[in-house]
C-alpha cells in the first residue's frame, strides 16, 4: 500500500536492492554487519582470553584455562552466527538450529573417526585421567603431556620427540599416569657375595637412604634380602619419593642419585658385587688317572690351555 504512493524511482531502487542480495534475502549492509560482528566477537574473545590469563592463571590449571578461553571464544562466534544468519534466509532461530543439527548429523556420519576422537576428548576432559605436565605412558609411548586437545593429545617423549596421539586411541587403551599420586615407590636390587655380611649391607643401605633428601621418611624405605641366586645374595630396597621430583617413568633421578652412593659405600666397607662365576669340576680329569676332580687338576687344565 505504501508502494502505491511512491514514485517509480523508488520501485527501481527496490528492484536493484533485490538483485544485489548475495546470500538469501540478506542485503550487502547485513552481510557487512555480520562480518563486523564476527571481527568484534573475535577481538572480544582475544581480550577475554588475555583477561582470564591474567586473573585466573594462578587458580586454574593451564589446560583448564585453555579450555575455558576456547569455549568463550567459540561461544561468542556462535552467538554471532545464530543471531545473524537466520535473518539472511528469513528463517526463525529454531528452524536455523534444526538445520544446524541436521548438518552436524550429516558431517558426523561422514566423519565417524573425527567424531570418535572428539567424543574421546570430551570423555577425557570429564574423567581427567591426566593433565598438562603429567608424565604418562600409553601403548608404546611415554612422555610429558604438552596439551590435551579436542581431537588429540600431544606428548613430548624423554628423547624430545613430539608425538600426537588421537583421543579415541588413548581413551580405549591403558594409560599410566606417573604424576597422579603425590608419591611413588621405586625398587632396586643389588647383588652381594655369599661371604658378605647381609646385616651390615642392609644397615649401610638404610643409612644412605635415611640421609638422602628425596627418599621419604614416611613410608620408610624397606631393605631386605629378596633372593639368593646362583651367583649372589640379592638385596632389594624399596623407596618412596615425591612424584614431582623424578619427572620420568624410569626415575632416572633416583637411579643416578642412589645407586652410585650405595656402590661406593658398600665397596668402602669391603662388600663387593660379584661377577657371575661358575666352578667346573671334572669327573675325568685331564692327565690324572686317580678319578678325583681336584683344584690342582683344574689348574693344570687351564695351564695347558694357556
Amino acid at each position: 500500500m505504501i508502494m502505491q504512493g511512491l514514485p517509480n524511482s523508488t520501485v527501481v531502487i527496490s528492484t536493484l536492492s533485490d538483485e544485489t542480495n548475495l546470500i538469501g534475502t540478506a542485503s550487502t549492509r547485513e552481510i557487512v554487519t555480520f562480518f563486523i560482528l564476527l571481527i568484534i566477537a573475535y577481538i572480544v574473545g582475544l581480550i577475554l582470553a588475555h583477561y582470564f590469563k591474567l586473573k585466573l592463571s594462578h587458580r586454574l590449571k593451564p589446560d583448564q584455562l585453555a579450555l575455558l578461553t576456547r569455549f568463550v571464544r567459540v561461544f561468542l562466534i556462535l552467538l554471532v552466527f545464530v543471531f545473524s544468519l537466520p535473518g539472511f534466509f528469513d528463517l526463525s532461530v529454531t528452524i536455523f538450529a534444526l538445520i544446524l543439527v541436521a548438518l552436524i548429523a550429516i558431517i558426523g556420519i561422514s566423519s565417524q573417526k573425527v567424531i570418535s576422537n572428539m567424543v574421546g576428548g570430551l570423555a577425557m576432559l570429564y574423567e581427567n585421567p591426566f593433565k598438562t605436565g603429567d608424565f604418562i605412558s600409553t601403548g608404546e609411548v611415554s612422555g610429558t603431556v604438552i596439551s590435551t586437545r579436542l581431537f588429540s593429545v600431544l606428548i613430548r617423549t624423554t628423547s624430545g620427540v613430539h608425538v600426537q596421539i588421537p583421543n579415541d586411541q588413548i581413551y580405549s587403551s591403558d594409560v599410566s599416569n606417573f604424576f597422579a599420586h603425590v608419591a611413588r615407590r621405586y625398587d632396586y636390587v643389588v647383588g652381594i657375595r655369599y661371604e658378605d655380611d647381609v646385616k651390615k649391607t642392609t644397615s649401610i643401605i638404610a643409612g644412605i637412604l635415611k640421609e638422602y633428601t628425596f627418599v621419604l621418611a614416611n613410608p620408610a624405605p624397606d631393605v631386605f634380602v629378596s633372593d639368593i641366586d646362583a651367583d649372589s645374595v640379592r638385596v632389594m630396597f624399596r623407596v618412596w619419593f615425591p612424584s614431582v621430583w623424578a619427572k620420568t617413568k624410569d626415575d632416572i633421578s633416583l637411579q643416578t642419585a642412589i645407586l652410585p652412593r650405595v656402590k661406593a659405600a658398600l665397596e668402602a666397607e669391603g662388600i663387593e658385587m660379584p661377577y657371575a662365576h661358575r666352578e667346573i669340576l671334572f669327573t675325568n680329569p685331564i692327565g690324572d688317572q686317580s678319578g678325583t676332580g681336584t683344584t690342582q687338576n683344574r689348574d693344570n687344565f687351564f695351564g695347558k690351555l694357556e
Binding site: 603425590v182 611413588r184 628425596f214 621419604l216 621418611a217 614416611n218
Partner: peptide
C-alpha cells in the same frame, strides 16, 4: 640443616611434607 621429605596421608590424596624430627 639437611632437608628430608615425607608423606602425610595415602599416596593418592595425601601431601608431601618437609619433615623434621
Amino acid at each position: 640443616v639437611p632437608t628430608k621429605f615425607s608423606l602425610y596421608g595415602p599416596p593418592s590424596n595425601g601431601v608431601i611434607t618437609r619433615w623434621y624430627q
